Computed example of a mutant assay.
Amino acid sequence: MRTRIALFAALSVLPFSAMAHKAWILPSQTVVSGNAPTVTFDAAVSNDLFYFNHVPLKLDNLVITAPDGSTVNASNTATGKYRSVFDLELKQQGTYRIGVVNSGLSASWDENGTAKRWRGNAATFAKEVPANAKDLKVIQSVGRVETFVTNGAPNTTALKLQGEGIELVPVTHPNDLVAGEEAKFKLFIDGKPAQGLEVEIIRGATRYRNAQDEMKLKTDANGEFTARWNDAGMYWLETTSQDKKTNVPQAKERRLSYVATFEVLPQ
């Protein structure tokens, strides 16, 4: 339990840019075809992209949206010391959205000179945090870590907005990315275009080069940004934000994070 709470704190409360560790979900392949092919996924929080050298990404809040918009389940899930794994049988034609979505609260207060800390959700907050807690500070958080895979012809039903936190809506389909070409995306916060979000994109295999070679971009007034892929490979994208738009009265601050993994294919 302590490990799960600590990981939730790292992923959904602290901005990713403030941490050395990066969370990600990595598919074995992103574009497949056939009668119900299977894709395997690794999920971890690591120092290097995409290597298992820190802790696993927990799958408690794994959500998989099928091409028709329905929710489907993973199979063969397992969590080891450094990574989680699962399989997904692509029974439908089209694009799947695979993500871990964390939403919750963290609180700190003083209790007779002793610092107390708590993490949980709105349902348990009133039961577990004293109503008269001294110096109470409550932070709400919403974090997403996701990726996309397509069986056959791509579609966009699974990519529709949910309306909470930071979400990415592709203009260029996420499974149609090619080295040497540009791709456009839009970022939204609570279903509305997010202007001025800073976006960082890093190609994988950072273990084998001295520089991160990151792309630093910013969304325009429509929440849109454009990335140009210089090389083929797996890429990691992240952005964070914070505001005061909480839906829990005691929480005065909300922290948002978004992470995605993309595959860029050679020309």
Results as ranks from 00 to 15, higher is better:
residue 41 F to E: 02
residue 34 G to S: 03
residue 266 P to T: 03
residue 99 G to I: 01
residue 14 L to K: 12
residue 169 V to R: 13
residue 229 W to I: 07
residue 46 S to D: 13
residue 192 K to R: 13
residue 176 D to I: 06
residue 90 L to E: 08
residue 236 W to N: 09
residue 163 G to T: 03
residue 10 A to H: 09
residue 128 E to G: 03
residue 264 V to D: 02
residue 103 S to T: 14
residue 28 S to L: 04
residue 244 K to T: 13
residue 154 P to Y: 00
residue 67 P to Y: 12
residue 254 R to T: 01
residue 79 T to E: 09
residue 148 F to Q: 03
residue 267 Q to M: 14
residue 126 A to F: 06
residue 76 N to W: 06
residue 37 P to D: 04
residue 211 A to D: 14
residue 58 K to M: 14
residue 2 R to C: 10
residue 182 E to S: 15
residue 266 P to H: 06
residue 249 P to C: 04
residue 23 A to M: 06
residue 164 E to H: 09
residue 17 S to G: 14
residue 209 R to Y: 04
residue 205 A to S: 13
residue 177 L to S: 10
residue 265 L to Q: 12
residue 43 A to E: 05
residue 64 I to C: 08
residue 104 G to S: 00
residue 84 S to V: 03
residue 105 L to T: 01
residue 38 T to Y: 09
residue 97 R to L: 09
residue 253 E to L: 15
residue 223 G to K: 07
residue 121 N to K: 07
residue 117 R to I: 12
residue 261 T to M: 06
residue 119 R to Q: 13
residue 92 Q to E: 15
residue 238 E to S: 14
residue 237 L to G: 06
residue 66 A to W: 06
residue 138 V to Y: 13
residue 180 G to V: 02
residue 133 A to E: 06
residue 133 A to Y: 05
residue 99 G to T: 03
residue 42 D to A: 08
residue 37 P to N: 01
residue 167 E to Y: 02
residue 65 T to Y: 09
residue 246 T to C: 04
residue 108 S to A: 15
residue 5 I to S: 12
residue 244 K to R: 12
residue 190 D to G: 06
residue 87 D to F: 05
residue 66 A to Y: 08
residue 12 S to K: 11
residue 91 K to N: 14
residue 189 I to N: 07
residue 198 E to W: 09
residue 263 E to L: 07
residue 257 S to Y: 01
residue 116 K to P: 08
residue 257 S to F: 00
residue 64 I to E: 00
residue 196 G to W: 09
residue 158 A to V: 07
residue 81 K to W: 00
residue 255 R to G: 03
residue 68 D to F: 08
residue 42 D to E: 11
residue 119 R to Y: 09
residue 93 Q to V: 15
residue 24 W to V: 07
residue 191 G to S: 05
residue 138 V to R: 03
residue 156 T to S: 15
residue 203 R to Y: 02
residue 167 E to V: 00
residue 194 A to S: 06
residue 94 G to R: 05
residue 117 R to L: 10
residue 193 P to M: 07
residue 76 N to G: 07
residue 197 L to T: 06
residue 101 V to L: 12
residue 191 G to V: 01
residue 240 T to L: 00
residue 19 M to D: 12
residue 13 V to T: 13
residue 116 K to V: 10
residue 264 V to G: 06
residue 85 V to N: 13
residue 99 G to A: 10
residue 88 L to S: 02
residue 79 T to P: 03
residue 259 V to D: 05
residue 47 N to V: 11
residue 4 R to N: 09
residue 177 L to C: 11
residue 13 V to I: 14
residue 178 V to W: 01
residue 33 S to Y: 05
residue 102 N to Y: 10
residue 95 T to A: 04
residue 142 V to G: 03
residue 205 A to F: 09
residue 111 E to Y: 04
residue 258 Y to G: 01
residue 232 A to T: 11
residue 17 S to M: 07
residue 4 R to W: 13
residue 255 R to H: 11
residue 151 N to E: 09
residue 67 P to K: 08
residue 199 V to W: 11
residue 130 P to E: 02
residue 223 G to C: 02
residue 126 A to Q: 14
residue 43 A to K: 00
residue 69 G to N: 07
residue 113 G to E: 10
residue 102 N to V: 05
